[in-house]
Amino acid sequence: MKGLTKKLFAGAALSIAAMSSATSFAGENPTNPIMGVPASSIEEFGGREGVRAWVESLFYYIMLDNRIAPIFREFGNPERQIFLNTQLETMVLGGPNEYQGASMSAAHADLGITMTQFNAVVEAAYNACERNVIKYHTCNQLINALAPFTDDIVTR
């Protein structure tokens, strides 16, 4: 019995590993905020190009913030980060799901992100919205859509 359980667990672990190594698509799913995200959000962000411009601003502000810049400098490949984040944000705002990265929990598992660091990124997100002249209310739709990932990202 014990051995069987062990084998089952090993099997499950293997299949999870197989899944994550093959995550060329759908490593993460759109979130499901209780009050929904308005369908017009992606458009108000300026479409895919608008989202990409926002992500570029986001990384600009992140790299200016001493509380979080070192983490991104050490672990991030900015070009790839911007590419994947554009896909992720497009997806959660109701656009097509073309996200090619790992799940939020897998991507952040080893980083030991604190709530303080997470909030610093949220501050950068608002600054990026202001820089890109995205309305505060529209910006909140993105926060609304990304907020459910908090527990996957903050591990400390």
């Binding site: 209780i34 009050m35 459910p148 908090t150």
Partner: peptide, 8 residues
Amino acid sequence: DAVYTSDS
């Protein structure tokens, strides 16, 4: 969590 649990 007052702020981040937008899915609950």
